[in-house]
Design a protein around this nucleic acid. Structure first.
Lengths: 140, 140
DNA sequence: TCTTGATCCTCCAGTGACTGGAGACTCTAG
DNA sequence: CTAGAGTCTCCAGTCACTGGAGGATCAAGA
């Protein structure tokens, strides 16, 4: 497999070109080797690493967490307790996000469908947002 | 009820002081009347409006959407179709967010608890993040 | 009355994670 | 050979805040 251009890498991973350069600039991706004419080249390892990053971002990991995970992945002889802790912390975060969103969904479901094409003064969208008592969840 | 200071408003609404000033600066809150010594003062209406904003932010509405909702709320004679459409659009967004997070949660649950205090090379956290085949969801 | 500490003011810069434009260079296909 | 697509660097902007510097003002206790 001959080296990829940045555009090809972007196409293969679904990560935009400026984002790839950004990841390099913050050290998530190593500096890509260049051609004679100064263009970045990538190999299969770069594709895997960028997929790793993209996947972790999709899971909601912050860049700093990803940096730690990559350090662990780069050095596979270490115990994985740290990575596990990272994932556990993130799982807790996701579960609270889901819970919050579910109550927000309930609230929005209350809101829509109650609009009888009437006036704002009887519209639940405005009401629910304005009136604290309509809260179905307890986040405050 | 005598006018509130910005600190009291912050305490009553849970919105931080710089955030309140920021909301004023972008026009979500009207310019607060000042005391002789140039301090902002707020009344019950300001508390309601800020709660409205906070609530909408918690529901995930963007500032622009909130601005529209506030415009509608400020002028209650208008039909509420627009507000309803806004809420509907947002509901769809929230539902897709929930679905995504649920699959991410499944993935993370797969990951944690499989760490046998072993080495990274057998750690699912790293594996799942590195290996595309472990995806339980279909977002790519 | 004085002083101390809390609160407030404005202005400005930074955050995270990108995103996009300007202007210049280079590669590829016809 | 030329046109257009792709790439380069640099820099500025996005969103929704967040925080610090430096200075003014207020409330309460000695």
């Amino acid at each position: 497999m001959q080296p990829l251009t940045i555009g090809a890498l972007a196409a293969q991973t679904g990560v935009k070109i400026p984002t790839i350069r950004y990841y390099e600039s913050i050290g998530l991706l190593p500096e890509a080797p260049r051609t004679d004419s100064n263009r970045r080249t990538y190999d299969a390892a770069a594709v895997r690493r960028l997929r790793f990053i993209r996947h972790a971002r999709e899971l909601g990991f912050e860049v700093e967490a990803i940096r730690q995970l990559l350090t662990l992945a780069d050095d596979p002889g270490q115990p994985c307790r740290q990575a596990d802790l990272l994932a556990r912390a993130h799982l807790a975060e996701i579960e609270s996000k889901i819970a919050r969103l579910e109550s927000l969904r309930a609230e929005l479901r209350e809101m829509v469908g109650h609009c009888e094409q009437g006036q704002v003064r009887t519209c639940h969208v405005i009401e629910v947002l304005a009136d604290h008592a309509h809260c179905l969840h307890d986040h405050h």
